[in-house]
Design a protein around this nucleic acid. Structure first.
Length: 454
RNA sequence: GCCCCCAUCGUUCAGCGGCCUAGGACGCCUGCCUUUCACGCAGGUAACACGGGUUCAAAUCCCGUUGGGGGUGCCA
């Protein structure tokens, strides 16, 4: 049996890290087994679907290196769904229902599902798009529906708790469960790997699949959810989790992908950061965890820093260049070596080099007081300025001039000078970048800082 | 309310009956390196939710409790 898996996002939002993780696990399984990875856009709900987001989803997947082998769009397949529904109707497996939601609510109360009121009322097929008539699927009243989840083990639901659910809206448009069952059947999906939030929909789809005549339903594997700090399912609104945001902030696709793998799965040998080929080799659905995992940006940052440091200087310069801002190519290259080893994502770069490229930032008040509050700072700045008037303008000499001034005065001179010239109390090693500036510029900054002391 | 799922350091993963006085990684702390900050290196901190079983032996199996989460739509 050749494995066929699918990632089935609804285009109702940007691809977020939870979706990306689902896509990734499907992809890993396909690549491991030599199977087929399918992208299926679930856009049956025209009101919520935003076609422009399909491109965002595709771009994010591509960025992560998750290439797909086939692509479908459910909105292209309504004919199939409608044909399936006609079959259900003919065979009495589904029926028309004209109950309004308030009717149902009035009959059964707040907490119960649909009561089967129209099961045998023979509600007539409505003229197209009129009259609030839906199609409901007739579910069994007794027995159980269950499956052996590859991650969770046996899961069973009493059929009595599964209401006769809607499969066609009153607008005539088929709904998610139906489209899902038809597609998984038609596309020969062998494994359904997705988030645990969908676990409750399985019995309905299983029932539908059976009604469709599927003798061998897919295997299901429900992934633990990725949660936020409050241990709640990630929300696109509340949580900052779109994949595109991480792209924009200078995270590497390889790092993101590698980090995502560690949420819910770990290699037996405890090695976390490793090439994707090794991950594919070791990955197995049976080893996936059941408990939800917190998306920890701090750890992602660590992974990303590691991946950045794995880059050789040329690759780093090229990849990080777009984040560096307006800086001369050769100058950036000269600065890159020390930038390379102290960032965790590329968008930290501007704050490291802005004072070399342009003006330093307005110093943070607290940092300023901490560094410039000492009594001897004025003397340091005066002596350094005096020395810099005549020193040879190259890093070694600058270091000697600045550090030597401190020695002469019996104090530390590097920090005040750094604060004066860069606007910050920490950053790149000082003297090489400082030598990139004009002598007059450096002197001006030092005198300006001197003037600001008390 | 009802249905379903889950439970090892703060976080994440390893552990699938004895190798566990529970291991790796992130974080945090300490030290070394050092022109600051980082990087790197060396240490340290810290967990089997609780209660019953089963067994010669349980973090590992079973039951219950508690605590979390998900679902409960003419969303997916």
């Amino acid at each position: 049996m050749t494995v066929r898996v699918r990632f089935s996002p609804a285009p109702t939002g940007y691809l977020h890290v939870g979706g990306a993780r689902s896509a990734l696990f499907n992809w890993l399984y396909a690549r491991k087994t030599g199977g087929t990875f399918i992208l299926r856009i679930e856009d049956t709900d025209a009101d919520r679907s935003r076609p422009e987001l399909i491109d965002n989803i595709r771009d994010s997947l591509r960025w992560l290196g998750l290439d797909w082998d086939e692509e479908y769009r459910q909105s292209d397949r309504f004919d199939q769904y409608l044909a399936a529904i006609d079959g259900f109707l003919d065979r009495g497996q589904a029926y028309y229902c004209d109950c309004s939601q308030t009717d149902v609510r009035a009959r059964v109360g707040e907490n119960a599902g649909y009561d089967g009121h129209c099961r045998d009322r023979n509600v007539a097929k409505p003229a197209d798009g009129t009259g609030g008539v839906v199609v409901r699927f007739r579910t069994p009243d007794e027995g159980t529906t269950g499956w052996d989840d590859l991650i969770r083990g046996r899961v069973e639901f009493e059929n009595s708790v599964i209401e006769d659910f809607v499969i066609v809206r009153s607008s005539g448009v088929p709904m998610f469960h139906l489209a899902n069952a038809c597609d998984d059947f038609d596309m020969g999906i062998t494994h359904v790997i997705r988030g645990e939030d969908l676990i409750n929909t399985v019995p309905r789809v299983l029932l539908l699949l059976d009604a469709l005549g599927a003798t061998e339903p897919p295997h299901y594997a429900h992934l633990p959810l990725i949660v936020n700090e409050q241990r709640k399912k990630l929300s696109k609104r509340r949580d900052d989790v779109s994949v595109g945001d991480y792209t924009n902030r200078g995270y590497l696709a390889e790092a993101m992908r590698n980090y995502l793998v560690t949420l819910g799965w770990g290699a037996k040998d405890d090695v976390e950061i490793r090439p994707i080929s090794e991950i594919i080799e070791r990955f197995d659905l049976a080893d996936i965890n059941k408990a939800p995992a917190f998306f920890d940006v701090k750890k992602l940052d660590h992974f990303n820093g590691e991946y950045i440091r794995m880059l050789d200087l040329d690759a780093f310069v090229e990849a990080s260049r777009p984040f560096a801002g307006p800086v001369d190519d050769d100058l950036y290259r000269r600065l890159a070596r020390s930038v390379h080893e102290r960032i965790r994502h590329y968008d930290e770069i501007p704050a490291l080099i802005d004072w070399v490229v342009g003006e330093p930032p307005e110093p943070d008040g607290k940092d300023w007081r901490k560094v410039m509050g000492r009594d001897d700072v004025a003397n340091v700045l005066d002596l350094v300025a005096e020395r810099l008037e005549t020193v040879a303008w190259e890093p070694e000499a600058l270091a000697e001039a600045v550090l030597g001034a401190g020695e002469v005065l019996g104090t530390k001179s590097q920090l005040p000078v750094r604060m004066a010239v860069t606007g910050r109390r920490s950053g790149l090693p000082l003297f090489e970048p400082m030598a990139e500036l004009e002598r007059s510029t450096v002197l001006e900054r030092i005198r300006k800082a001197r003037g600001r002391l008390d």
